[in-house]
Design a protein around this nucleic acid. Structure first.
Lengths: 194, 194
DNA sequence: TGCCAAAACTAATCAGATTAGTTAAAATGA
DNA sequence: TCATTTTAACTAATCTGATTAGTTTTGGCA
């Protein structure tokens, strides 16, 4: 291993992703990351502006990756089946990349174009999935928010170890999504009465 | 103001609660807290074992307070109305005590008796509320997990500033809860077919 | 081959948490 | 009341981690 390790932002982000997914976002430090990359801590500052910026970059990666998972799951599916598929993709992503997902919820830089774009991609994907329900425009957005709340809430609590009772977590998830879908159907029927 | 500030754990927790609810959990530091209490940082160590323990104590407070809010909302109500009431209480608590709530999700000490007890109180309260639906035992727990996911997810995203579109957030919340309630009704009807 | 820019390095600084050891105030009790 | 004991403050010091300043090495290229 040569004394000079050729770093670049991509390599740094990859190693940081490994670290946060394995040890948790809060364990990410400049020192540990530098050690894993076999450089001295100050060297990292040649490639990024500090720990906080690094976390924001991870956040962007997280949203982009989440979108990719969901997009893959959605192709060729529609209606209830599509909702189930993107929901499964969401929970799968969080389970495989808990640190990245955590970064995307805790360190989103609202001013960052790339982040906003990635977030909008997810919203639009879900809106397309909901298209088949012919919801009124506003109602569709309320439902996107609802599904997002469900997915974020369930996965967050799972990651925190919050489901303590000895009862199959996957079943809870399936039932929750199905309950929501049933709810959409019911709301769709009543749509013109509100 | 006498040179000796008579501190105790209660006063410390009160001030820490103010700080986290006003400035965010991550802004809580021994230094800032000591400054607000007009003592030197090391003095706090006479009353607690460190910053981490302080956050765990805040977490317990958070769950206890949340339970109190929900309990107040639930008295005298049942069925759909009770679900709406405890949901409103939940979001109200998070809006009034964002830092405390954040602590309760990020720093729960799973070994702490007091915390476990408070968490169980919340679960049991929701189980009682769901009693009127005559769900099978397991299904009731799945639904508790579902409602909890919804409430945690929605309030977390709101706190993170995640609902960007110009659309009434309270309406989104009401619709989400109603959709879930409709879903419960549908699932209840199908209960014996699963 | 020698210059230049990039990117590493060492050394130093700064902030915050925490610990060690000291002292003042308050409480207790003869 | 006054001495003793305990509590809980204090100052000074240490440790960890992020960051900055300034220096040196290296690899590409004229």
């Amino acid at each position: 291993m040569s004394r000079r390790m050729k770093l670049d932002l991509l390599i740094i982000l990859q190693k940081a992703t490994e670290l946060v997914d394995e040890h948790g976002l809060d364990q990410l430090s400049i020192g540990l990351l530098a050690e894993k990359l076999e450089v001295r801590p100050p060297s990292l500052y040649n490639h990024l502006d500090g720990l906080h910026e690094l976390k924001q970059k991870l956040a962007i990666q997280g949203v982009k990756n989440l979108h990719t998972y969901m997009l893959q799951a959605a192709v060729g599916r529609s209606g209830d089946e599509a909702i189930r598929a993107i929901s499964q993709a969401y929970i799968q992503f969080v389970r495989e990349h808990p640190g990245l997902y955590d970064a995307s919820t805790r360190f989103p830089n609202a001013n960052d174009q790339a982040l906003q774009h990635a977030q909008e991609s997810v919203v639009h994907l879900v809106l397309r999935v909901l298209d088949t329900y012919n919801l009124q425009e506003e109602m569709a957005i309320h439902m996107v928010r609802g599904l997002r709340s469900i997915l974020h809430g369930f996965t967050s609590i799972e990651q925190l170890g919050g489901f303590e009772m000895p009862l199959d977590i996957n079943k809870s998830f399936t039932i929750l999504i199905n309950t929501f879908i049933e709810g959409i159907h019911a709301v769709t029927l009543n749509q013109n009465e509100n």
